[in-house]
Design a protein around this nucleic acid. Structure first.
Length: 604
RNA sequence: UGCCCGAUGGUGUAACGGUAGCACAGCAGACUCUGGAUCUGUUUGUCAUGGUUCGAAUCCAUGUCGGGCAGCCA
């Protein structure tokens, strides 16, 4: 039985502590902010994966633990890379992951709403607050950085007026050259000292579409000699005559990440802007932009943590895309992928993902988390909830010679030994059965205690049988096993408590239901595929094996929301490819198998 | 060779100047009508060198190693 669970909340374990939560706790205690407000800001240019889950669990976790809100925001400032397809998918995946756990702190906004303006001390301020805890998906939508383009433009104009930004005519190549190198200062652009009026005029004409892509940029005027290259007059706006998935053709200039992100945070009233380590060097710029705009409300602060690296997989959008495009997997929701859709289709529950995210912690150390930790979280979760069923993946016929030809018994079986309320069901038993090929060996090694010639095993919930005869065809292939049952060994019988070394699973051949089972394994053979010259060389050619299995009749009524443990084999979930007359199961993960290890020790 | 960040068992993390703990993995055992689950035990660690201190994983200095940064990507 499972150990008594500690504090559980929405199916998720008690939250951990980490340096970011400590900062939040302190800020709240000091009254620096009255309510914590975080955000999860993916760029809609790809599907969410387990690494995003770490960020989602952090941002929504903090919101719910401290009575705050977490906005879902599309960080969509680059029209050439983004698409509504991704917006839709991201929303679905986030909802799936936080359902029943943090929906009440999910910050959305009424569809189409843009920031409201308000005059504070003579200048215009922009704010867009969230709507929280509503499930109406039709009238609400996520936040979009692109909804702030008008306000962002206004902020840029303000910077120009203050002499803190200028229009630069350098080409992209020239801009690169002028930037210098990390160990060498840059040179000032010849356009750096244009008048405010000229800058205003040019910027307005950039917006009006007078110049082609790349002809000019708007740049912050900071310090070309800064040791931090991001402070060397970074580009704030670039010209892109491209259609945007959310704003259409309304704009031909687009703000860069650095300009848009801090201000989006500000507009939404974000208090703690949490991102990954690579943005650490951007923080001075994040602060510079906000501080040079004389904004009336409290400024958001950026904090960085280490992104997730997981062994035996790849996480970069580029590589995931490549796996899909090159056909190494069957799509974005392929159960072998670390995408949230992949994990979902594989049968992993949101609770398992959240518990995993909680257990790995939050630090600034860029490490590598063992896939075994994720796998453990999945087993831990599924062990608790999965209904036990009997199914045989690779059948071997077993005939019980002393069992009447026509007899059928309905044997009671526990649905879940971990859950007394899960009840029982009946399994039909008859003279001809299928057992797992792996559960029989004609000449077994020492520690094999499954069925062997002359040996005995218990058939789960049924009788103890002895193998009398091994029947083969002319080529020596195993055809069937002929056994005799101890007819007194069934539950309630005289020999019910006889001990045998092993209990194996089985199905009655006559009653068995066929099913396709997709057996997934790790996608890569090495812990760090990224280290290889070509990471694809490490692809596991056996990451998917398809077998035709035989299942106990109860599985004919399987439904997609249930999780099943095929006893002694692993956890399975019904796949979307199933239909009324065809069962397809995905193996989420195998059970831990001590025999596999024993066999490896024996050297085969 | 410029700037920023980091370093605690095999891996991921905790300890906030006072007994280095937890999880995963490993190993050994108990139990078991799942070689599952559960339970018990156990191997292995503070990057280095100085300094401050009664006392340092923790504070300071120097070094070593690792990561990040030179997109009009995010």
């Amino acid at each position: 039985m499972t150990k008594p669970t500690t504090v559980r909340d929405g199916g998720t374990e008690a939250p951990p502590n980490d340096f970011i939560r400590e900062i939040v706790r302190q800020h709240l205690a000091e009254g620096r902010c009255s309510q914590v407000h975080t955000r999860f800001p993916p760029e809609p240019n790809g599907y969410l994966h387990i690494g995003h889950a770490k960020s989602i669990c952090l941002n929504f976790g903090i919101a719910r633990e401290f009575g705050g809100i977490c906005n879902l925001r599309m960080d969509d400032t680059n029209p050439t890379k983004e698409d509504v397809e991704y917006v839709k998918a991201i929303c679905e995946d986030v909802r799936w992951l936080i359902a029943g756990w943090a929906d009440h702190c999910l910050g959305l906004k009424p569809r189409g709403r843009t920031p409201q303006s308000q005059i504070v001390n003579g200048t215009t301020d922009y704010h867009l607050g969230p709507v929280v805890g509503q499930t109406d998906g039709d009238t609400l939508e996520p936040f979009f950085a692109s909804d702030y383009f008008e306000q962002l433009y206004e902020f840029a104009v303000r910077l120009i007026r203050k002499g803190k930004a200028y229009v630069c005519d350098l080409s992209p190549e020239e801009t690169d050259q002028y930037r210098g190198a990390p160990d060498r200062p840059g040179r000032e652009s010849p356009w750096r000292n244009r008048s405010v009026e000229e800058n205003l005029d040019l910027f307005q004409r950039m917006r009006a579409g007078e110049f082609p892509d790349g002809a000019r940029t708007l740049r912050a005027k900071i310090d070309m000699a800064s040791p931090n290259v991001w402070m060397r007059d970074p580009v704030l706006y670039r010209i892109r005559h491209a259609e945007h998935h959310h704003t259409g053709r309304a704009w031909c200039i687009y703000p860069t990440y650095d300009f848009a992100h801090c201000l989006s945070d500000y507009i939404e009233g974000i208090t703690h802007s949490i991102c990954t380590l690579e943005f650490e060097v951007h923080r001075p710029l994040y602060d510079w932009i906000l501080e040079n705009l004389d904004l009336p409300r409290p400024l958001p602060r950026q904090y960085e943590f280490a992104r997730l690296n997981l062994s035996y997989t790849v996480m970069s959008k580029r590589k995931l895309l490549q796996l899909v495009r090159e056909g190494h997997v069957r799509g974005w929701d392929d159960p072998r992928l670390p995408t949230l859709r992949g994990l979902r289709r594989r049968g992993v529950t949101p609770e398992a993902v959240r518990n995993f995210a909680y257990r790995i912690g939050i630090t600034k150390y860029d490490g590598l988390t063992d896939m075994a930790v994720l796998e453990h979280a999945i087993r831990d979760d599924l062990n608790r909830r999965a209904l036990r069923r009997l199914a045989v993946l690779r059948p071997l016929r077993l005939v019980i010679t002393n069992y009447p030809e026509d007899q059928v018994e309905e044997l009671p079986a526990l649905n879940n030994p971990e859950d007394p309320h899960a009840g029982t069901r009946l399994i039909p038993f008859s003279r001809v059965l299928y057992i797992e090929q792996d559960d029989f060996m004609e000449s077994p090694p020492p520690k094999f205690y499954r069925l062997q010639p002359g040996g005995e095993v218990r058939l789960k919930y049924a009788y103890i049988v002895r193998c009398d005869e091994v029947v083969k065809d002319e080529n020596g292939w195993l055809l069937e096993l002929r056994c005799t049952a101890d007819l007194e060994s069934k539950a309630g019988g005289r020999n019910a408590h006889r001990k045998v070394k092993s209990t194996i699973h089985w199905v009655s051949a006559r009653h068995a239901v066929p099913a396709e089972c997709r057996l997934y394994d790790r996608l890569f053979n090495v812990p760090e595929p990224d280290l290889l010259e070509d990471w694809r060389d490490a692809l596991n050619p056996n990451s998917l094996e398809i077998v035709q299995a035989w299942c106990e009749p109860a599985l004919a009524r399987a439904c997609p929301d249930e999780r099943y443990q095929f006893e002694r084999l692993g956890y399975f979930v019904l796949d979307a490819d199933s239909s009324a007359d065809r069962l397809v199961f995905n193996r989420t993960i195998t059970l831990k198998d001590a025999w596999v290890k024993e066999r490896q020790k024996l050297g085969s």
